[in-house]
Design a protein around this nucleic acid. Structure first.
Length: 384
DNA sequence: ATGTCC
């Protein structure tokens, strides 16, 4: 399937919305039309196959501007994204060993609200070298970076072991910039107006430059966070499975970010809220829900979508709906082939497979954006 | 997503 166009100038829409999702909710379309009505948006808005309602701007929205950045468009978790690593080991691991590994991962890696205690970890000097735009943010960095680097966070963040079609073992990490991205986002959302007003900042002004520079730092921190999480996880997995060497393949993608890109001979600021940049030939990781398959995909660089693809399967139930509608039995059945820390089953309800669309269908909706490369089947999950 | 309003 390709996209369909939604364009109603009589509703104030300035540019068309191209929709890859086959059945977006009415409220999702309203949010897409709202961002497509803003004065700074150029050419068209693209809605990815997993588009769904969020605060302000729908998750799965991609839009481009000239000389404008929009702090409120991204939400708090700047640089949220995925790391995937192929490990030099077989995925045929007995259940008892997997249970031991996830229990140890749960002890080794702070999850949910947890952070490193006391002085925390040492932070790579390159993450402390550049200034942030205000002293307050620099103080926040000094206080939080060493406590948040290498922590998973909550919600839909997870760490997972997977098996590919050849029986190879993979590690997946879904996490972001933790409290630091949230602090950067909150500061600049205030500077640009209220968090829901979708105010834009001119990139040629101090405020616009400050946001973009702080954003780039938050993206670096998010990537370093996933790297630290993966490193710790590999230490734990390696101790149990005797990993002989380093990962044989590594990929990392942001799915909540702004990037300066060249399109049609112009320099544009492409905003991706829950979407991945996939230039022609570039790989990305599209996770299903926890407990269902994920895919390594290869980008087709389709300009119609600003060279983007979906960041996941997309919610069909809100967190609240998932809690009321998905029974513990149904969840246990859906997760029966996946090992997770004992006693944590209730935590999974909000992220259960039934709360998300089928990933195969979501990939069908974007066959003009990415092709499938590697199917990854989960064998063990640590939930954030 | 987020020490979820210093």
């Amino acid at each position: 399937m390709s996209y369909r166009v939604v364009f109603e100038p009589e509703r104030g829409q300035r540019v068309p919305v191209r929709v890859w999702a086959r059945a977006p909710a009415v409220e999702t379309l309203r949010q897409l039309q709202h961002i497509a009505s803003q004065p700074y948006v150029v050419e068209h808005v693209a809605a990815m196959a997993d588009a769904h309602v969020s605060e302000g701007v729908a998750v799965g929205t991609v839009f481009a501007t000239e000389r404008t950045v929009v702090p409120a468009a991204l939400g708090g978790d700047l640089g949220c994204g995925m790391t995937a690593m192929a490990l030099p080991a077989r995925a045929e691991v007995d259940r008892r060993t997997l249970e031991r590994v996830v229990a140890e991962l749960g002890r080794a890696i702070p999850t949910g609200h947890a952070t490193h205690r006391g002085a925390g970890v040492s932070v790579p000097s390159e993450l402390l070298a550049s200034g942030l735009s205000t002293r307050a943010l620099e103080h926040t960095r000094e206080a939080l970076a060493r406590r948040h680097l290498g922590t998973l966070g909550g919600g839909n963040h997870f760490l997972e072991l997977d098996r590919d079609a050849e029986g190879g073992l993979w590690l997946l990490v879904h996490s972001g910039s933790r409290g630091l991205g949230a602090a950067v986002a909150a500061h600049h959302a205030r500077a640009a107006g209220t968090s829901t007003a979708l105010g834009g900042l001119d990139t040629e002004t101090p405020a616009g430059r400050a946001y973009y520079d702080d954003l780039l730092w938050a993206l670096d921190f998010a990537r370093a966070n996933r790297e630290a999480l993966a490193k710790r996880a590999i230490e734990v997995v390696g101790a149990a499975l005797d990993l002989a060497s380093a990962p044989t393949d590594v990929l990392d993608v942001h799915h909540n970010f702004v990037a300066k890109e060249q399109w049609m001979g112009r320099e544009l600021f492409v905003h991706r809220k829950g979407a991945v940049a996939v230039p022609m030939g570039a790989r990305a990781l599209i996770p299903g829900s926890m407990g269902t398959a994920s895919y390594v995909v290869v980008g087709l660089g389709n300009a119609a979508a600003w060279g983007s693809c979906s960041h996941g399967a997309g919610r069909v139930l809100t967190r609240r709906e998932a809690r009321t509608r998905i029974s513990p039995d149904a969840l246990a059945r859906a997760m029966r082939r996946v090992v997770f820390p004992s006693g944590h089953a209730p935590d999974f309800v909000e992220e259960a497979p039934a709360a998300y669309r089928d990933i195969g269908e979501v990939l069908e909706d974007q066959e003009d954006l990415v092709r499938r490369s590697v199917r990854l089947e989960p064998i063990a999950v640590l939930k954030g």
